[in-house]
Write a protein that binds this DNA or RNA. Structure first.
Lengths: 149, 149
DNA sequence: TCATATTGACAAGTTACATGTCACTATGAC
DNA sequence: GTCATAGTGACATGTAACTTGTCAATATGA
């Protein structure tokens, strides 16, 4: 029955996430990054300079916490503040040369590992899995809200 | 490319888990349970009486934390201590009538919701997704360990 | 019987967040 | 321009879900 399979799939999300984040964390050893500062740098790497609230929106966590993560990356000179023409009080955060090299190296290493894993899977099944998981996530989301829609 | 799809699938595990746990949490409103005490009761419901270390092993978290969760369920009389013939100092934890009714109601409600969701999916795609996610989790697990195997 | 392991209880520490407040700064309607 | 309203950085505090360490009581097995 689909119901039971779906139930098992839902509860597999936690082990998958834990395994994934542990693997990422291990890949971060020696870089001085944490899983969360890695996430900030990845946003800047993928989308270019952004303000703290913009990064927070992308990461779907609140701006106050992102602020502390960004402050850490500023302190370790992985990022810098740049003048924001659109808002004088809210500078754009951008990668420094070091920051760019660091995150690029991390992402490249991760992609290499995933490339190795990918050999055990074929395109069609992964595409199906991705589609199912995406639809499932969207279907579950409203159920967690105050007033489920 | 399979690699990119796989990468996206890996990073979807967190949103899926968050959506799933938020939905579970919402279903717990009014029962006095938390996501974690629910997990303890579910183990007892599915596998029968168990000691604290046994529950911890099933949940893959440490016994000290499980002990505090179990103590909460004992305090709210959802569970009771029963003599353990195999170990005098480590009682078996079992559901009370109230505990059994509570967890049965919660699980039934969850299964009903999943049943509704299941109508948007077909058996084959969910089976494929489950298989991919299981294999992916097992493949990622060793990468997070000290000495990746 | 005696070394070793298991268990419950308790204390602390940690991580990854959320929430609330303040002062400052923009922005847009007028 | 002016003024209500919203966005922002900084800071403080709170919280859930853990981990780690320790101790004394108790088992277990050679």
């Amino acid at each position: 029955m689909t119901k039971d399979l779906l139930y098992r799939l839902i509860w597999l999300s936690r082990p998958l996430m834990q395994a994934a984040e542990a693997a990422v964390d291990r890949g971060l050893a020696g870089t001085g990054l944490t899983v969360r500062t890695r996430a900030v740098l990845e946003i800047l790497h993928d989308f270019g300079d952004a303000t703290v609230p913009e990064i927070a929106h992308r990461l779907e966590i609140n701006r106050q916490y992102v602020q502390t993560m960004v402050n850490e990356t500023l302190a370790s000179e992985l990022t810098v503040r740049r003048a924001n023409p659109r808002h004088r009080a809210s500078p754009l955060i951008g990668l420094t040369a070091t920051g760019r090299e660091t995150i690029a190296a991390v992402l490249a290493a991760e992609r290499k590992l995933v490339g190795d894993l990918a050999q055990s899977f074929d395109d069609a099944e992964v595409a199906t899995a991705l589609d199912v998981v995406q639809r499932l996530t969207e279907a579950l989301r409203p159920l967690g809200r105050e007033r489920p829609a």
